[in-house]
């Protein structure tokens, strides 16, 4: 991948937190390398304390790295022109709680130097985008978690950013709120935004992301597209009804069949050549074939596998 394609580049990033009680320090990020391409949605996933938020905070210049470099649009984060092209949604939506949505968005838009007329337009557009018109005058402290999260996303969009950095955008939301937020992220993706996202919710990551990086103990232990991470299907599942007792046992004894349990016949993908023979045998044994699938491992499976291997 050439540098021109990369909107965000991290090389050898290391962050060690030192304190009086831990003079040797705690390594929060350890020699991290990653890059995010223009227009893609990249997600960093990992368990608590894996260094995801620390990485984002370094990228945004909120904390400083112990080693390594970061660049966004080819420049350092201290460059104001870079920050003018970024939008950031912090975890747990921390905004001034005594102001309402209108006031907050007007304030954040003002930090980009927009005129009062443009700010008024932006406030309307953004409240409409995140579905907060009806609650525009509700003080932030009285907003529900979902409303807060949507307002926080709106403030991240005041400058129509090219790169959006979202830290746990669905954290603490109920299923309806999560669905709404996922739809908003997909809409932003459709509009061509480059998105870097940190999340615990693997299902949501699977839904919106093009590439995923799995972080564990500060290191990137796996990275790639979902297909790359999941790899090729390793087994074939045949869902069957009407196959019980001795008939099921007979099917289990067929060449290539690994297991018959709860109406599902499991075959190794390596024995795909035996599939038709097995299907015919099931049919003759009185079973009704409902479906044949070659499932890929889910992100959850990949995540558990990657973390498990590292933990060993």
């Amino acid at each position: 991948m050439s540098n021109e394609e990369a909107v965000l580049q991290v090389e050898g990033l290391t962050k060690i937190y030192r304190s009086l009680f831990t003079p040797a320090g705690v390594k929060a990020v350890d020699d991290l390398n990653l890059s995010v391409r223009r227009g893609e949605t990249y997600s960093i996933v990992g368990p608590n304390g894996s260094g995801k938020t620390t990485t984002l905070k370094i990228l945004l210049g909120l904390i400083f790295p112990t080693g390594g470099t970061t660049s966004i649009f080819g420049k350092g984060i201290s460059d104001l022109s870079v920050r003018a092209r970024i939008g950031f949604l912090p975890e747990d939506a921390y905004l001034y709680d005594c102001f309402n949505g209108e006031e907050l968005l007007d304030f954040y838009a003002g930090l980009f130097g927009f005129s009062s007329r443009r700010r008024a337009e932006l406030v309307e557009e953004l409240l409409s985008l995140v579905g907060m018109q009806a609650n525009r005058r509700v003080p932030f402290r009285e907003c529900s978690k979902g409303m807060r999260q949507r307002l926080a996303l709106a403030q991240a969009l005041v400058n129509d950013p090219e790169l959006l950095i979202l830290d746990e955008p669905t954290s603490g939301l109920d299923p309806a709120g999560r669905h709404q937020m996922t739809r908003l992220i997909l809409e932003l993706k459709r509009r061509g935004k480059t998105i870097l996202l940190c999340s615990h919710f693997l299902a949501e990551v699977e839904e919106v992301c093009d590439r995923v990086g799995i972080m564990y103990r500060g290191r990137l232990v796996a990275e790639g597209t979902l297909a790359e991470l999941a790899g090729e299907p390793t087994e074939i599942l045949i869902t069957v009804t009407g196959l019980e007792g001795a008939a099921a046992e007979k099917v289990g004894g067929q060449a290539g069949v690994m297991e018959v349990r709860d109406g599902v016949v499991r075959m190794s993908k390596a024995d795909e050549g035996q599939l038709w023979a097995v299907l015919e045998f099931i049919h003759r044994a009185g079973g009704v074939i409902v479906e044949v699938t070659r499932p890929r491992p889910t992100l959850q499976d990949v995540f558990v596998r990657a973390i498990g291997e590292e933990a060993k």
């Binding site: 210049g61 909120l62 950031f88 912090p90 980009f112 991240a156």
Partner: peptide, 14 residues
């Protein structure tokens, strides 16, 4: 402490 500073310092504000 309230982390309201994040949304400000991530904008073009020195």
């Amino acid at each position: 402490e309230n982390r309201t500073v994040y949304a400000i310092l991530s904008k073009p504000v020195r």
